[in-house]
């Protein structure tokens, strides 16, 4: 099974809050205008944030088995 890791590119985040609003598990919050993971353990790696981030600042990255 391929594992996935949630990555945030703070430099590209404009703080619109779309990912925060549509995350089904309330994993994300805005802090000082940038998205951060407030509750990373709740993330189900569904990718809803990545799909709707207008700035490509949050995404799931595949990681090799055993690396995460």
């Amino acid at each position: 099974m391929v594992n996935k890791r949630l990555i945030i590119n703070e430099k590209w985040c404009k703080g619109c809050g779309i990912c925060v609003a549509f995350c089904p598990k309330q994993v994300l919050v805005l802090k000082k205008g940038k998205v951060t993971k407030a509750n990373p353990d709740a993330c189900i790696k569904c990718g809803q944030c990545e799909q709707r981030c207008p700035d490509y600042a949050i995404y799931l990255e595949k990681v090799e088995e055993g690396a995460n």
Binding site: G17, R52, P54, D55
Partner: peptide
């Protein structure tokens, strides 16, 4: 990138 579109602009989503 990052693009010039405003925070929350739908264009980024549609371009993806």
């Amino acid at each position: 990138l990052p693009h010039i579109w405003c925070p929350g602009c739908g264009n980024g989503i549609l371009m993806r």
